[in-house]
Nucleic acid binder design. Structure first.
Lengths: 204, 204, 204, 204
DNA sequence: CATGAATGAGTATTCATTCAT
DNA sequence: CATGAATGAATACTCATTCAT
């Protein structure tokens, strides 16, 4: 998104304003879309929550769809940067698995709304090609991990997508249940789940 | 939906129409809500897909909210009946676990739309108290299972809700990835996942 | 209305049914239109109150407009027959005035709903030419009365329409206030008002 | 509507638009409701006549019912202020009667639509408690007038409500007949009617 | 004839988007 | 740039009318 850069530069030139409107709009949109979905939220509501006028939203985003796409890309990129960062060289499969899981859960615990937002809006009709493209990086990362770990005999013979389904499902499940107050998604829970998941896939 | 058949049969006995409109409306609503969410679907679209006039929907359901609640209850009840049916007496924990998982996956493979619909609409603001009440039966079933299995030494020391998060997450994940064509959610996949999940929670 | 005659004849041939539907529909329509107006009442409501099926109404009346016109004509004719009946020969102006007023109030006290219905629907767009024509008989009756009474020196020099406005206004006013419980429209009230009205117009 | 002018003036002071939309909507609504009744008028029609978009009406009034209530209150208050203003001290009953009647007819001749609107919508189901409350001020004014005038021997022994029925009925009757072109509701007609009404109630 | 479920045009209301200030 | 009143197309819902039984 090059508007970003333009806006940022301009502002840096003349002292960055405390009230940067664009992030406030994205933040408000995240909170509202996450619970009620794209079609369940009216643009003036987002404006109200962001503390800006309705028209202002259209200075930063062409349309409501452009806004949801910007939001989706923003978080998907954040997530990809954090979670798909390559594990360090020479790590054992167990360590690599731990690497992925810990990053996933750290992210999920820091930004549970973002996790729910992405889970809810995955594959929605209003996401454009660029947004969708960001969702396709898992398969290859998962395949590499599973192939390598299988070769070394540490992993059972499983479809890489099953591993992804298991990990994402478990993580999203913890976020949802934690939001409902059914359990606390703390470091201990994350560690317990890591152990469980490793047992699920490890060759013992 | 097999209740449909029951209804139809009843009606045929008294020479009633075979084209029972209520189930057709519910079926159309399921297909549309599942992909686009409650607010993303217009009532006339449901009518069109169901092959009835818009006004007809309001003869069967007071409002659009009443329709989504009826749909949610219908599927939640079906799901509860199938999945939460008590395991047979004298079953081992491994067998009980298998019982639950197999019923979940059988249901999920037969009615993937229903699974996605329920996952998407869980805790939506337009669900009424009665609909929500149907979602609370898991905790107790899970607790009973985990307590018994732990006592017999078959299960590791895990929060029952973590077991639910793991199982529901895995099942929903398989449904979603299968819908995207990323994997085939067949009996073999279900069996592989069962083995993985059991390893995740079993005391070895 | 010639349908009337057909229906009546048929029924007389084979024993008059107790449940004659046409009058029941007209009665229900009167009660509902009188309080809520033509557009404020739904046809199925009329059917419900009349104790017939919705479709049945359309066997007796082509459309909702035809129904309201039939109702209007029915009551306007009844009213005209009762009130505009020529006063007997040789009556004094005071007696003629009394004749008109007493018939108006007798009718109004017997059928207050009809008075309110006519008052409310006078000149409505959905009344057809035939219905409107029935409203024009007053002017001539009033003119004759005023001309004669003036000639004999019993009446002051007043516009005939002012006399009609005074009498109809007073009568409708009594019906409305009585419906609200603000006063009792009994014989005594009618007589008191007659005296007042005569004083208003008489040459003393 | 002279409050309009006040509002407009206020706004002109702060350089606000001359095209004040609220009064234009109320004006359009009055014209339409008066002839066709609340349920006979569609909101977009009001918008069209007011020269605003349909949605704009909902910026000024929450619902169509809120609009009709605002309109009713506006005119009822205007009417009450004009007509129920206390007669000056030391006036004779004849003068007090003249005071009330002249104010009624002045108002009725200036705003005949408002008179017909109020007459048509009195006691409609969609009027709320606040609107209805404005209609109850007559009884007490009438009672005071009748009691005082009777005590001084100027008035015959009449139910105060009969006096109200007579005056309101005569006034509304003149408005209606005048709208139909059956008579001219000018100052002379008003004066003639005043004389007639005083004779109706005065003790001679 | 009577029924009432079904229809779809019509109504009240909302909401994404624009634009004058 | 920011604003929020104004817009009108779109949506949920109603209701006069039809017609198969």
């Amino acid at each position: 998104m090059h508007t970003d850069k333009v806006v940022v530069r301009k502002r840096l030139d003349r002292e960055e304003p405390q009230d940067a409107k664009r992030p406030r709009i994205l933040e408000a949109a995240l909170e509202l879309f996450e619970t009620r979905g794209f079609d369940g939220v009216a643009v003036p509501e987002i404006a109200l929550k962001a503390g800006v006028a309705t028209g202002t939203i259209y200075r930063y985003f062409e349309t409501k769809e452009a806004l949801v796409n910007a939001l989706y890309r923003y978080w998907k990129k954040q997530y990809n940067e954090v979670v798909l960062a390559p594990p360090y060289e020479g790590a054992t499969p167990r360590q690599t698995f731990s690497h992925y899981w810990q990053r996933m859960t750290l992210f999920a615990r820091a930004f549970p709304r973002a996790i729910r937002f992405m889970d809810l809006h995955h594959h929605a009709a209003y996401l454009d090609a660029e947004s969708r493209a960001l969702s396709r990086n898992y398969a290859s990362a998962a395949e590499t991990f599973v192939r390598d770990a299988r070769r070394s005999g540490d992993l059972r013979d499983l479809d890489p997508m099953m591993v992804v389904a298991l990990m994402w499902g478990a993580c999203a499940g913890l976020v949802k249940f934690s939001a409902q107050g059914a359990l606390a998604f703390d470091a201990e829970t994350a560690a317990d789940m890591e152990e469980a998941l490793w047992r699920a896939i490890a060759n013992t």
